[in-house]
Each structure stands twice: as structure tokens, then as C-alpha cells.
Design a protein around this nucleic acid. Structure first.
Length: 204
DNA sequence: GGCCAGGACACCA
DNA sequence: TGGTGTCATGGC
């Protein structure tokens, strides 16, 4: 599947961000949200020169919420971003490069302990911002694999992650590209099933 | 006007 | 432990 998708789409060059910090903020903002809405929020922060650790640290939570309003759930997400910044400051002296030198398994546990960072967001940060070999499981990954009969629908996050990681090379570039490919093919051919029982949707 | 989008958490039985 | 409600905007 990886080889076929890679041939079909080519290098998708994920994550769409200019800096590791932008990856982290994007990972929080994209929770249950269309990426086009995240781009508006990221753009608003960039225009004001606020998309830096120092910039967001000095921005009050209420004002941050106003900037990221287009991404939806803006009050929740502003709180989550502030929670991450507090973690970065207390555990890694505010340094992303220092954070990146932390062992992947330990860092994952640290991230999961932060309010608003669950398995998928933590793994996005580990893979796309910290260059750790951790596969990101998301709604598209699950949907595409379930509809190909490659895993049961009720498989847990960690079980599905394990299954994929054991099937491809343990390589940051491969994990990066494979996740991007699954999202792309999911968007193109495997939309969410309609609520009406028995109704048809685009089969993969 | 309704559905959906690259989740996570609080609350309850 | 698992199910359900909540958070919210923008595009189709």
C-alpha cells in the first residue's frame, strides 16, 4: 500500500509548516477541524509576528483565542496552547531544541500529561516537530485501513500504531510520508460514511 | 440548512 | 471502562 500510494502521489512534503513550533501549534489547532480553517488561524498569528514561543507566551489567553477563532473551539484551543507553553517552560526551559533531545518514549509520556494533548497530537509533535520515529494514527488512517479489511473498526490507537510500525521501515521519512499519503488518499477517495444506515459512500 | 472536518476531555453509569 | 455530550468555525 505504501509503495503504490508513494508512486501515485509522490513526495507530499509534510507537515505543511515552516518551523517545529508552527507544527506544534498546527497540531493543536487541527483537532477535529478542517486544515483550511487552521491556515487562517496560523496566518493571523504570523501576520502579527506572534508565532514564536516568546510571542505566544506574552499574548494573554483571551487575545490568543481571538486570533485563532477561525480554527473553531478557540477557547479550548487557546487553553491547550497555553498548557503546552507552560510545559515547555517548566520541563525544557522554554527550548524546543532541548525538548527534541529528550528520549521519544519519555517525551511522549510528558506530552500526554499536558491538558489537550492526546495520542494523535502527541505523535504529530513527536514525528513532525521532533523528528522521532513515531507513526501518527488519525481518522483517515483508521478509515482507510478498516475499509480495506486490514484491521477491525474497534482497534485501539496503540494497536493500530503498532501494526503499521511493524509493517514499514522504522524511518522518520517513511512514517512522515505514509501518514501524509493516507490522509491524501482518504480525502480523495474515502470520505466519512453518511449517517444513514445502509447508504453508499466512496469505497476505497 | 445540514453535514463534515487530520481530537480531547469531562462526566456518568 | 465505555458511552455520550461539549467545544465552534467555515466550506460545500
Amino acid at each position: 500500500m505504501y509503495a503504490r500510494l508513494d508512486r501515485f502521489y509522490g513526495n507530499l512534503k509534510w507537515w505543511p509548516a515552516e518551523t517545529p513550533f508552527e507544527v506544534i501549534i498546527g497540531a493543536i489547532l487541527t483537532q477535529n477541524t478542517a486544515w483550511t480553517n487552521v491556515e487562517k488561524a496560523i496566518g493571523a498569528l504570523k501576520r502579527e509576528g506572534l508565532l514564536t514561543v516568546a510571542g505566544l507566551n506574552r499574548l494573554p489567553e483571551m487575545q490568543l483565542a481571538a486570533f485563532i477563532r477561525p480554527s473553531g473551539y478557540y477557547n479550548q484551543k487557546a487553553r491547550k496552547i497555553k498548557a503546552f507553553l507552560a510545559f515547555l517552560d517548566s520541563c525544557h526551559k522554554g527550548s524546543l531544541s532541548r525538548m527534541a533531545r529528550t528520549d521519544a518514549a519519555i517525551l511522549r509520556e510528558q506530552l500526554l500529561a499536558i491538558h489537550g494533548i492526546g495520542p494523535e497530537t502527541a505523535d504529530c509533535i513527536l514525528l513532525y516537530a521532533m523528528d522521532k520515529p513515531v507513526f501518527v494514527v488519525d481518522a483517515y488512517t483508521r478509515r482507510v485501513l478498516v475499509r480495506h479489511g486490514l484491521c477491525p473498526a474497534d482497534i485501539s490507537y496503540e494497536q493500530l500504531q503498532q501494526r503499521i510500525e511493524s509493517g514499514v521501515s522504522r524511518d522518520v521519512r517513511v512514517y512522515n510520508q505514509f501518514h501524509a499519503l493516507l490522509v491524501q488518499v482518504g480525502k480523495d477517495f474515502c470520505r466519512k460514511a453518511p449517517r444513514v444506515p445502509g447508504a453508499l459512500w466512496n469505497p476505497c
